[in-house]
Nucleic acid binder design. Structure first.
Lengths: 188, 188
DNA sequence: GTCTATAGCTTGATAGAC
DNA sequence: GTCTATCAAGCTATAGAC
């Protein structure tokens, strides 16, 4: 077979899809090879540490994604709180495909290599916590109240995603995300 | 080695521990054998369908547990709403070891055999939904309002458990569970 | 940088003795 | 009902050609 150049961003996207759908231990090198279009040896060339390195890599990309699509957006002081939050929540809905797609962080936060991933996962949640908290404080909440409501927003996202998928009803996710602006004190 | 009789309830508890900790795909027959004290062939004697059967079995036990420790308790009309809810939430705190133990339902709701487990998992969440909803209605809420608050209670439990473990901070779980009585309209 | 081929191990599962 | 012994398949990972 011909050795066709495969773009890193396409590989990353496919690896992410597989890990997010099947979890770390439910994913094999063969699955990653078929999804990415690269043979196993080629994957090892790009990721010498194998599966573990691939998962760590897509987690780092996830961290960047949250930084860009949630944190930076919410800190963009040129626009109204409401507009910023709308954009960030739209991005989150897109990421989780309206509640039909699993959360990469959650799928990698309970597996045989979790200790290796934990720091990045924690960092991702901290980025969200900071971002939502910033909005809540901007809407007049105290530091501690904002921290609590921000945590609740993340709990809503994670919990509703678990439930939406288990009950096969994406309205649960949609309703939980839709409730976040009011939770964070955004004026109607 | 001597063939020592091992009690089914002890085996069940150990199998549950392993599946809940490592997930379905992260669990091997060897791990289940070591944890239960039964050799692999003995496990196949008790569970002819292998791993899949064992996980399905512990899920059925989980369903019974929720029925007995949450649903039945909350429907026990001989006591106050507040007392019943306190007992059920204490059981939930015990089940999840104050936020340090994973949720069996969640760990089995995203794995290679999920389709095989989904019906029971769904049933477990429905039992919780009915139970919390019954309390909320008893406290004066409408059918639809009670359904919403009940769903929020389950989201709080699942979401806070994910976060508690990811952030290594069990206070997140404790606070979320502690907020449930007020959420369901129990008078202070 | 991608491939084929394969090593070495672990997996889920079974046969058959006691 | 539990065990030892074993199988075939799948796994992660590597060697070496192009």
């Amino acid at each position: 077979m011909a050795a066709v150049k495969v773009f890193p961003e396409d590989v990353d996207r496919k690896l992410n899809e597989v890990f997010t759908r099947y979890g770390y231990d439910g994913t094999s090198m063969e699955m990653l090879s078929q999804a990415s279009g690269l043979k196993k040896a080629s994957l090892y060339h790009r990721f010498p540490g194998g599966k573990k390195d691939m998962a760590a890599h897509i987690l780092k990309k996830t961290e960047t994604w949250f930084q860009e699509h949630v944190n930076s957006v919410l800190h963009d002081e040129g626009r109204s709180m409401s507009d910023r939050l709308t954009e960030a929540l739209d991005a989150i809905r897109f990421l989780f495909e309206d509640g039909t797609r699993n959360c990469t962080l959650r799928m990698l936060s309970a597996c045989s290599e979790t200790p290796y991933f934990q720091e990045t996962i924690r960092s991702c949640f901290n980025i969200l916590q900071d971002a939502f908290s910033f909005i809540a404080k901007g809407n007049g909440m105290s530091e501690s109240e904002a921290a609590g409501k921000s945590m609740q927003a993340i709990i809503n996202i994670q919990g509703s995603l678990v439930l939406s998928r288990a009950m096969d009803n994406q309205e649960i996710f949609k309703a939980s995300v839709a409730a976040i602006p009011e939770l964070l004190g955004v004026p109607k």
